[in-house]
Design a protein around this nucleic acid. Structure first.
Length: 841
RNA sequence: GCGAACGUGGCGGAAUUGGUAUACGCGCUAGACUAAGGAUCUAGUGGUUGCAAAACCGUGAGGGUUCGAGUCCCUCCGUUCGCACCA
């Protein structure tokens, strides 16, 4: 055995039996030089495997969370290579956006400089940790060769009316000086980046009409069995489909119509007031009586000034103000008060609700507070109608209609249909589907993003930049990009002033940039053809590689990126550029890395563990194995350095085993077939255990159950002692097989071992071991004997023993006799190969 | 409030889906080898009782179904995550 107590200095005694600091870089260089992980241009459709990990935001160096994410994908693709698949495993950088810009400004650097520097550092690190990315496919979204095609897709959307501008009340972060998408406002109403309070502002902004795809985005979820249920549930919730009815009320003494959306048209006769959102545009059309005007205006101003957070905190306490106006219920001609109330959302439905306090809890609370009457119009099907005076909460269940004229007696869903039919016949309403999903606000008044390829001409209006003029490059010089509340590009005179592509007259470029989530909505397609200068990607190549077989990333993107990239995919499918209209067959959300106390790692808490330091100290493979082993891949992982100890010991043992097998000399014929009938007892046991382990590893890696995969190898080697086996060749083949099994998870170690055992070429071009289906079970099994549910004895029997024979054996046992003595056996159940259950009385 | 997931030794976690609970690893205890051990090897390690054989208890709590429940059903308790006035 070699002396391993060398080099590393006095502090860090080397723990491994081999010098990882020499071995690991050596194999990394080998993989790069031999292009071991280079994806083919055009794979064979049936043999391709596209594994995507979410690309990185280059905000510094990679951290433990990235590392965890990437080693999971890495193990899978390494196994796929060995299983003969043609693999695409690319990586890139989500390089535009606010965080980079802010970080750069803070350091007095240009965002491009800061970003490219971080990309360089992170790429180096990823190479040092030996992740098997095909670097020739690298994509960087802030480079013109990439964002040119983001602009191209934008224009395609624009041409189809899916990208449009409108005045809109938008989320605006005063600190970041920009508008935000709904998805970028945290649940508490604060900005996702700076955490400060978001306010509403009416601005002219660009939107993607993602709502046009709402139904398809929802429906396809049912056809994605490989997506986690939790994720699909979150998306369904976010899209939020409601089927209902739009009913037109009329303003009293006026031709103004007040449409409302309701999912409960069967409660129409119970409407006792209407409520309109403070921000609703309809409000501007109303002629508020003079004596109410001041009160109403004050209320509106107060409500709009309130942040989302305040309004959401008030779900129990609703307030509003009476407008002095009345609306007419088209079903019964009743006159009801029209209120302004901030519990009504301007952005959902029509911004007005018909309030039915007896049957809606919110309306109930509001009516109670302001003494507005209530009217019961629904009763339990087999019960009495609730008494208004005694109600402490709204009766929201469906039931039978009462006090509803000709509709009395109609029940549940049928009642809803009848009322809706009536409304449609009379032309006072119509069926309507509403979604919670809103159109995607995509423009940003910031510098560091993809310029929007639109030109505003005084004469021609909005004109698209001709395709041949793409990309509209983001100017690197001459822009003061420090945020001032309006687009920095608007002040870049040399850039913004252009000739109109249509009339040649004076015009200005649109000075907004695109939300970064646009860059990440189609990057998975650029990877298939990242150097294409004619199109975003080649259609044939995309169809060969798509769909993504496995997409790994955090759940944090559930209702953002993971919806957007589905939207883009469907759009490109509609353009005829993709056969598939869903991007990914399987999605896997890995858990987060926590510190040893179970607290999220963060710079501000100072509990961050650096993967770079860790691998420098203990080696990549040890760190990887410790992470695979520490917790199931989809769960939070509390990181402790103790976890490294076990895998270090294990790798040392394994290394010694390989040294032994290597010194035995001679070439190994790893495909040699054995006649298991000629095996000695111990040899046969090893053979069966090996086959069990191969089966386990084959399945566990495919299913991302790495913790049990590592355990299975440990268990196998714990029971494997070549000294007990006479057939030296057999032992060496077994050793080589186990090296193959661990290769996806400890790749450097495995390459080294592979070479030591006399093989040539990369182990990842060797063939993943097949298991012998006939040799995964032992001939004898342990059958336990339960008496009244308690285990009393166990028998070692032939696997195929008959039920009669084993019962006879069982009853003959002393321990069994002792326990059934003097009692009657009323039942005897035999579960093959597992147990006998006796019931005695 | 709604939705989802989870709760197993001192710790991280296993359990072929209803069939020997605690695999694998950490830690701990004892022993071996040593000048030495923070190296390595061997054995042990859920709890209680017992010299032992063995018995009883045991997967958040309580109940149920079953020959048999960590696993299925019901009622609670707790933790985590997501959504949150969507009419």
């Amino acid at each position: 055995m070699s002396d391993t107590r060398s080099s590393k200095g006095s502090e860090t005694e080397q723990r491994l039996a081999y010098d990882f600091s020499e071995i690991e870089p050596k194999w990394q260089r080998f993989w790069e030089a031999e292009q071991v992980f280079k994806a083919p241009e055009k794979p064979k459709k049936d043999d391709k495997y596209y594994l995507l990990v979410m690309f990185a935001y280059p905000s510094g160096d990679i951290h433990m969370g990235h590392f965890r994410n990437y080693i999971y994908g890495d193990a899978i693709v390494r196994q796929k290579w060995m299983q003969g698949k043609e693999v695409l495993h690319p990586f890139g950088w989500d390089a535009f956006g606010l965080p980079a810009e802010q970080a750069a400004i803070k350091r007095g650097l240009h965002p491009a400089e800061w970003t490219m520097k971080n990309i360089g550092v992170s790429r180096d690190t990823l190479k040092k940790v030996g992740i098997s990315f095909d670097w020739s496919r690298e994509v960087t979204t802030c480079l013109p060769e990439y964002y040119r095609w983001s602009q191209w897709i934008f224009l395609k959307m624009y041409e189809r009316g899916l990208a449009y501008r409108k005045d809109s009340l938008v989320n605006f972060c005063p600190t970041c000086n920009t508008v935000l998408a709904n998805e970028q406002v945290e649940a508490d109403g604060n900005c996702w980046r700076c955490g400060d309070r978001v306010v509403k502002k009416r601005l002219n902004q660009w939107f993607f009409k993602i709502t046009e795809y709402a139904d398809r985005l929802l429906q396809s979820l049912d056809e994605l069995p490989g997506w986690p249920d939790r994720l699909k549930a979150m998306q369904r919730n976010w899209i939020g489909k409601s089927i209902g009815c739009e009913i037109n009320f009329k303003l009293e003494n006026s031709e103004i119509e007040i449409p409302v959306f309701t999912t409960r048209p069967d409660t129409i006769f119970g409407v006792t007031f209407m409520a309109i959102a403070p921000e609703a545009e309809l409000l501007e059309k109303l002629d508020i009586p003079a004596d109410r005007k001041e009160a109403v205006e004050q209320y509106i101003q107060k409500a709009i000034a309130k942040s989302e957070i305040e309004r959401q905190a008030e779900t129990d306490d609703k307030d509003g103000v009476f407008t002095g106006l009345y609306a007419i219920n088209p079903f019964n001609g009743e006159k009801v008060q029209l209120w302004v109330a901030d519990y009504v959302l301007a952005s959902y439905g029509t911004g007005v609700v018909m309030a039915v306090p007896a049957h809606d809890q919110r309306d109930f609370v509001f009516a109670k507070k302001y003494g507005i009457p209530m009217k019961v119009v629904i009763k339990p099907e087999d019960g009495e109608a609730p008494n208004v005076a005694e109600m402490t909460e709204a009766y929201v269940e469906k039931g039978a209609m009462v006090n509803s004229g000709d509709f009395d007696g109609a029940v549940g869903q049928k009642a809803i249909e009848q009322v809706t039919d009536f409304a449609e016949q009379k032309g006072i309403g119509r069926r309507k589907v509403n979604f919670k999903l809103r159109d995607w606000l995509l423009s940003r008044q910031r510098y560091w993003g993809t310029p929007i390829p639109i030109i505003h001409c005084e004469k021609c209006g909005e004109v698209q930049v001709p395709y041949e003029q793409l990309p509209v490059e983001l100017p690197m010089e001459g822009v003061d990009y420090i945020p001032k509340g309006r687009s920095p590009l608007a002040d870049a005179e040399a850039w913004v002033n252009v000739a109109c592509p249509k009339c040649g007259g004076p015009a200005k470029r649109d000075a907004d940039t695109m939300d970064t989530f646009i860059c990440s909505s189609w990057y998975m397609l650029r990877y298939v053809d990242n150097k294409n200068e004619q199109a975003p990607f080649d259609v044939e190549k995309a169809n060969l590689w798509f769909p993504i077989d496995m997409y790994i990333g955090g759940i944090t993107h559930a209702t953002g990126h993971l919806i957007y990239f589905r939207f883009f995919t469907k759009f490109l499918h509609d353009l005829g550029m993709l056969e598939y209209d869903e991007p990914a067959e399987r999605v896997f959300n890995h858990g987060m890395v926590m510190d040893s106390q179970g607290v999220t790692m963060s710079k501000s808490r100072g509990n961050v563990v650096s993967p770079i330091e860790l691998i420098a100290e203990r080696g990549v493979d040890v760190t990887r194995l410790a992470m695979y082993f520490a917790a199931p891949a989809d769960r939070e992982m509390p990181w402790t350095a103790e976890g490294l100890v076990g895998v270090e010991r294990f790798l040392n043992k394994f290394y010694r085993l390989i040294e032994g097998a290597a010194t035995a000399g001679g070439a190994i014929d790893i495909e040699k077939r054995f006649d298991s009938n000629s095996f000695s007892g111990e040899q046969k046991a090893v053979y069966i255990r090996l086959n069990q382990t191969i089966k386990k590893l084959t399945e566990d890696i495919e299913n991302l159950q790495f913790n049990t995969a590592v355990a299975a190898i440990m268990e196998f080697l714990g029971n494997f002692d070549p000294a007990k086996i006479e057939d030296e060749e057999f032992s060496r083949i077994v050793t080589a097989r186990v090296v193959q099994l661990i290769a996806p998870m400890a790749p450097h170690f495995a390459e080294e071992a592979w070479r030591m055992l006399g093989f040539e070429g990369s182990i990842f071009h060797s063939t993943w071991p097949a298991f012998d289906e006939n040799a995964v079970q032992f001939d004898t099994v342990t059958v336990v004997v339960q008496i009244n549910g308690k285990v009393r004895d166990q028998l070692e029997v032939d696997r195929e023993i008959s039920e009669e024979a084993i019962k006879e054996l069982a009853f003959a046992r002393e321990k069994v006799q002792k326990n059934i003595e003097g009692r009657e056996v009323v039942k005897a159940i035999y579960v093959k190969g597992k147990l006998i259950s006796l019931v005695v009385r």
